[in-house]
């Protein structure tokens, strides 16, 4: 075991970990913004509205993340029309391609988590709100969504952890995330065990931070359930 190479590469790995964290946080936030309307459509009584997000959810849950990243990065770049469009300044950057792929992917999973949560909001609470004359929009805002977020939180923290690990695939499209940095250093030093061990430890730290953040949010959201 070559400890020196682990110590020497730590600053570069830490920089990579920052990129990884950025990818997860940005696409996580964008993913939730996309997932909320999709989940609301999925529980609609109107069949056509329910069907709308279905294709999106099926495609992104049914195909590997690596394939999705390749389609966004190498696939879109093949078309002249895409290269001439106003979006190209973004799409030519591996960073934004990764954000787009991760956002679309996580939004599909999150939408399904949220759909389940919305459906398990106790019927009586919604009925009570109807009885006091709340409008459907107000019921969504005050009762169904806040309750659903609380119910979904533990399952959603799982999804974020899975996304953290999935983000390692960003290294396949030239991004210098934690895995990308590790692989580039290994290419020079041929010490895969040391570098992957160090990268693995940093992933554990990131996962720990994310879970800690969720625990804080959970405690705040459920503070009415706490003793005292």
């Amino acid at each position: 075991m070559n400890w020196q190479v682990m110590i020497d590469s730590f600053p570069a790995l830490a920089e990579g970990a920052l990129i990884t964290l950025e990818l997860v946080v940005i696409s996580g936030i964008l993913g939730v913004l996309l997932a909320v309307p999709m989940a609301m459509a999925r529980v609609s009584p109107r069949p056509w509205l329910r069907a709308l997000p279905l294709a999106h959810i099926y495609f992104f849950r049914g195909t590997p993340l690596l394939v999705q990243i390749y389609l966004v990065y190498y696939g879109l770049g093949q078309f002249e029309a895409v290269r001439d469009s106003v979006l190209w300044p973004y799409l030519r950057e591996a960073y934004w391609c990764a954000i787009i792929a991760f956002t679309l992917n996580t939004s599909a999973y999150t939408a399904e988590i949220l759909r389940g949560a919305i459906q398990s909001v106790p019927r009586g609470e919604v009925e009570a709100a109807e009885t006091v004359g709340m409008s459907p929009a107000l019921i969504w805002r005050r009762i169904r969504l806040p309750r659903a977020f609380r119910i979904a939180l533990p399952a959603y923290s799982n999804e974020v952890i899975l996304m953290l690990k999935g983000s390692a695939l960003a290294s396949t499209i030239t991004l210098m995330d934690l895995t990308g940095v590790a692989r580039t250093i290994i290419a020079r030093t041929y010490t895969p065990v040391e570098l992957f061990l160090a990268a693995g430890l940093l992933y554990v730290v990131l996962a720990f931070l994310i879970l800690g953040g969720f625990r804080l949010v959970e405690r705040r959201l459920n503070r009415h359930l706490q003793p005292g």
Partner: peptide, 18 residues
């Protein structure tokens, strides 16, 4: 410097203009 997993992917990105 952009590093690719395969030589073929580097050519693909030369074609896309990246």
């Amino acid at each position: 410097i952009r590093l690719y997993d395969t030589q073929e992917n580097a050519y693909l990105d030369l074609e896309s203009g990246r």
